[in-house]
Design a protein around this nucleic acid. Structure first.
Lengths: 370, 370
DNA sequence: CAGACTCCCGGAAACGTTTACAGCAGAGAG
DNA sequence: CTCTCTGCTGTAAACGTTTCCGGGAGTCTG
């Protein structure tokens, strides 16, 4: 038997050397066969057999070191519990998988240190590229993005001159759609439950809300504005605070999680939705359709943004010399039962009536692209 | 300037060679300084300066090839949109992060081919270990798990003799808790909305439901059992089918997503929850608390299972010779408004009454560990 | 002042793979 | 029969890092 220089046969996993020795060929031939390129029938047979016998499995890291690519793409979002990121992830995944790569998701928990550390660490070549959707952006952060060793695409607002591929939407305008819709439905005491103002989306949505009210000549009543986290619990608590001091006839929420919290707070407090208070969320996630009544929501095109981000990333991986590009996805409004303008005689929120026809007032996702 | 043998200064990224040459030291010294081990003050200064000047960033892949560890741990679940996995992920993440590693999440989409492929591919050393929660397990699958080149921990039911670290719960018993609770509340026409029977959890829950009814001497009415996916839409559709042919006074759902779908179907059909139909979900996720009324739910200890799985994995990574271990987490029942036994005079599902005290009937997660 | 000890340094090997290159045998063409 | 071409093979270099090891300089001890 050719036992010339086998690797540690004691515990080490088999390498291409092991297979080559066992098959009685050189490592070059073994590698070629294992990669399906070249090799005589006899060699192929011997190598295949040897590989199977020792249970050879190639070391992807060594391969990557050689090929300079890992076939992995990462997505970093702050909170994987937010369904909007799930939708985005699904869109990205389908594009990425189609290119033969795999998608890895990393939750940063929103801590900025975490996110920069991730960028500096993960991007140190473990992945071929990365899509990141930061909710806070510092200069430090931006610097890490710009001189990342691997291609990065940012989903979300970014400084106009940042030399980074960027897919954005206009949530400022998005909030405007919600306000327009509510005003058209004769609501005037429109409240707003927002996320933290020191975040990029929080700030944009606040600006959008103020601008929209102004455009309709409505004075902003500060008691109708509350701020919390972009989470369910915070949304519910913020709404409770708001309801304790004001009497809105409509509520715009900065995302669907907050809107669900608001809905809960409203119902617990005995308000009818939409009769007493109309409710509009944002992001138009599956969650909005899961509620009863179903929630109107401003779509920021998460799926579309995810798809485009993935495409930008793949293109940049293919050609790193491309100039930075920026794409924009327009918001739209999905009107559902939680804000449908209905006559008082036909309340949408039925609780103890007959079954027949009760489903009617809950329209199936009528998309009003305003 | 010592321009002896710099790497391709044209486009290639700086390597430790670049830094060493620029600092006028050997690559060994450069590496030592960059790793913070050894080096004279002067050398340290020179290397640090050189590294900063060229913007050196270590190649993690090369480092991993040498050290045989990547510092990455993967979690593979079928559907990242299911909040139960989000909870599990959070628990795992906190343990993994504490060990200085990073967690990557991969959604398999439930396709078994996908999952085995992932195992065979990702586990080819890109990660130091992997936690996987399969909902279907074939022999092929099991084989891939057993001779995975990296440590694997399975969350979920597995053949008793499978030599794989395993954290499980007893969802069979869990369903029993729900049925016991409903029977105690004088419900007798108890329906069941399950996931696919060819999945491990689906089969276990089906068995649990039948056993529990039998234990209470209740004959199973097949019209009260429906099957769909473990998803919201499927749960809603399945419940609609069930309601079209039967008249349950309680519904047990195989997970919270299904339960939310069932709630929607019930409310749309005009049934009051819990007066007309009591509802119990499973997994006790955040989603259950987000609903109105809040859903009772059988906790399968997702957080606990995630934590334990992560600990098992870290221990196995530290010592791969450990014998396979199996841990079990007991289910418990969280009773909330959707199944609270209340006198008819004080309906839980208030829809248009005053605000004061209306929150009372919605208890804050009273854990009844039966 | 000699010896032992400490500290730092550079050369070289190693991790496991892919691949450029050259050698070699066999086959077909002239 | 010789020349060329084709197809396969093995040697060795490369990817970028860490680390073992031997050597040299300096310091402390006796």
């Amino acid at each position: 038997m050719g036992r010339k220089r086998l690797q540690e046969s004691t515990d080490g996993r088999p390498t291409v050397h092991t297979v080559a020795a066992r098959a009685g060929v050189s490592i070059a031939s073994a590698s070629r066969v294992l990669n399906g390129v070249g090799g005589s029938p006899e060699t192929i047979r011997k190598v295949r057999a040897a590989a199977a016998e020792v249970g050879y499995v190639p070391n992807a890291i060594a391969r990557s070191l050689q090929s300079q690519r890992t076939g992995l793409v990462a997505l970093a979002v702050e909170d994987i519990g937010n369904p909007v990121y799930v939708e985005m992830m699904r869109a990205i995944e389908s594009v990425v998988a189609a290119s033969g790569r795999q998608l890895l998701v990393h939750a940063t928990g929103g801590q900025i240190a975490n996110e920069t550390a991730l960028l500096r660490q993960l991007a140190h070549r473990y992945v071929d590229g990365m899509i990141v959707s930061p909710i806070r952006v510092t200069d430090d952060h931006l610097a890490a993005l710009v001189d990342s060793p691997v291609p990065v695409v940012v989903v979300g607002q970014l400084a106009a001159d940042a030399p980074v591929d960027n897919v954005r939407t206009d949530s400022r305008t998005g909030v405007g759609l919600a306000v327009d819709h509510l005003v058209a439905a004769s609501r005037r005491r429109i409240g707003f439950v927002n996320g933290p103002l020191d975040t990029v989306p929080g700030a944009a949505r606040d600006a959008g809300f103020r601008a929209a009210l102004a455009a309709h000549g409505i004075d902003l009543d500060d008691r109708l504005v509350e701020v919390g986290d972009f989470q369910y619990a915070a949304g519910r608590a913020a709404t409770e605070r708001l309801l304790a001091r004001a009497r809105p006839d409509a509520l715009v929420c900065a995302n669907d999680l907050i809107a669900v919290g608001a809905l809960h707070a409203l119902l617990v407090a005995g308000h009818r939705v939409p009769e007493d208070v109309a409710l509009v969320g944002m992001d138009d996630t599956e969650l909005a359709r899961m509620m009863f009544p179903q929630l109107s929501s401003v779509s920021l095109g998460s799926t579309e943004r995810g798809r485009r981000a993935a495409e930008l990333l793949l293109q940049r991986i293919a050609d790193p010399t491309l100039p930075p590009r920026r794409e924009q996805v327009a918001p739209s409004l999905a009107v559902r039962a939680s804000s449908a303008a209905v006559p008082d005689a036909a309340p949408l929120f039925v609780s103890a009536t007959g079954p027949a026809g009760a489903d009617l007032p809950t329209p199936r996702t009528p998309e009003v692209t305003a």
